[in-house]
Amino acid sequence: MQRFVTQVSGGIMATTQGAAHAGQTRRDFLFLAAGAGVGIGAALTVWPFIDQLNPSADVLALASTEVDISKVPLGQQLTVLWRGKPIFVKHRNAEEIEKARADDNAPMPDPQKDADRVKKPEWLVMLGVCTHLGCVPLGNQGAYGGWFCPCHGSAYDTSGRIRQGPAPRNLEIPPYAFLNDTRIKIG
């Protein structure tokens, strides 16, 4: 954009530089101002055409979802769609919670305590998107009793933490809150 401005005003200036007129600096300023005006106008015009690509108001309005968790049996997982991506709502049993806590200090690529990943220990809410390249991991599989991603072999534990395989980070915890004992609001 800078170059365009200089080219427009420079082009105008270069051709008239031959003529020897008094008030050269005044004329140069005029051409610079005009050229700058055209350049600025062009730049300002571009913004709406880029911003229209951003999420529209109706998409932004669906930024949050409420989920009824009352019917999820112990040990089972509910998968819901949030912002177009799957969310795992896992109703963990005592064994799974224990296993997760026991490994809190085990060596792992992305160390995190289980307590930091849940609000209520029996409810694990996380994005079902493998942090490697985005496949949806399968539940109750893998060497660590949690999830296993069939695409490239990443294995997550019962807290959704990456333990083995190419994925760099633990399964992401979305923003969520308990509205009451049976409803959570995600996003």
């Binding site: 105008i12 051709t15 008239t16 004329r27 005029l30 051409f31 101002a33 005009a34 005006g37 055209v38 106008g41």
Partner: peptide, 13 residues
């Protein structure tokens, strides 16, 4: 404003 500037520039040239 831009039209004004460009008009004066045009006259000069």
């Amino acid at each position: 404003i831009l039209s004004g500037l460009l008009f004066v520039a045009k006259r000069r040239i």
